[in-house]
Simulated assay, not measured.
Amino acid sequence: MQRFIVQPEPEGRVRIVLPARMLVDKGVAEFVEAARLLRERGFEAECVLAGGTDSQNPAAISEKQLRSWHDAGLVSWMGHCADMPATLAACHIVCLPSYREGLPKVLLEACASGRPIVTTDVPGCRDVVCDEVNGLLARVRDAADLADKLARLVVDPKLRRRMGAAGRARAELNFSLARSAEQTLDIYRELI
């Protein structure tokens, strides 16, 4: 909560970032397709892939494919980002269209940073995002639905701010280090 702080939205065109390892099951291809659909529909947004490749993972997206999407102007690919607080502060919307997750740390970081989230309606993601409260839940593997959800936030700065504030409050209430320590101690007390 101290490292990821709420900062005002950056000036300029809306920036949507997908911060994850570049894996098929993180929904990277659906994000790229949603970016194409947004552009086709006339929405002004910069769509950014923020993450490195993982060549040891069978679900890895090749650097060649990532560069191809980047060179075609569909998305920008930043590669590995060492400073996640700065990456999140520089965006307007965080998107993680994953096929499955545990409890995605990057979504907790997005909440703490006060950024609205568009993610998929799968376990883990929906444990962090309450639909219509601190973000929007899209259908898994559905680029058109993902584009629809992103478009709502692209055009509505008030909705982004409201959802971002709700995300920060959710992070403080449910996911802070103090809250985790309290819950752990409660378990120990119960067992003793």
Rank of each mutant, 00 (worst) to 15 (best):
Q2W: 09
R3G: 07
E11D: 12
G12L: 01
G12P: 02
L23C: 06
A29E: 15
V32L: 02
A34L: 02
A35D: 04
R36Y: 01
R36N: 04
R39T: 08
R41A: 13
G42S: 09
G42W: 14
E44K: 15
E46K: 01
C47Y: 03
D54L: 05
D54E: 14
N57V: 09
A59I: 00
Q65Y: 01
V75C: 01
W77P: 00
H80K: 08
P85D: 13
L88D: 12
L88Y: 02
A89H: 09
C91G: 03
S98F: 11
R100T: 05
E101H: 06
E101M: 08
L103W: 03
L103P: 01
K105Q: 14
L108R: 08
C111A: 10
C111D: 13
A112H: 09
G114Y: 00
I117P: 07
T119Q: 04
V122M: 07
C125P: 07
R126I: 06
V129H: 02
L137R: 07
R139L: 11
A143F: 06
D145M: 06
D145G: 08
L146W: 11
K149E: 01
K149Y: 05
V154M: 13
D156K: 07
D156A: 11
L159G: 05
A165N: 13
A166I: 05
A169I: 12
A169V: 11
A171I: 02
N174E: 14
L177Q: 13
R179M: 09
E182R: 06
Y188S: 03
Y188G: 02
L191A: 14
L191V: 13
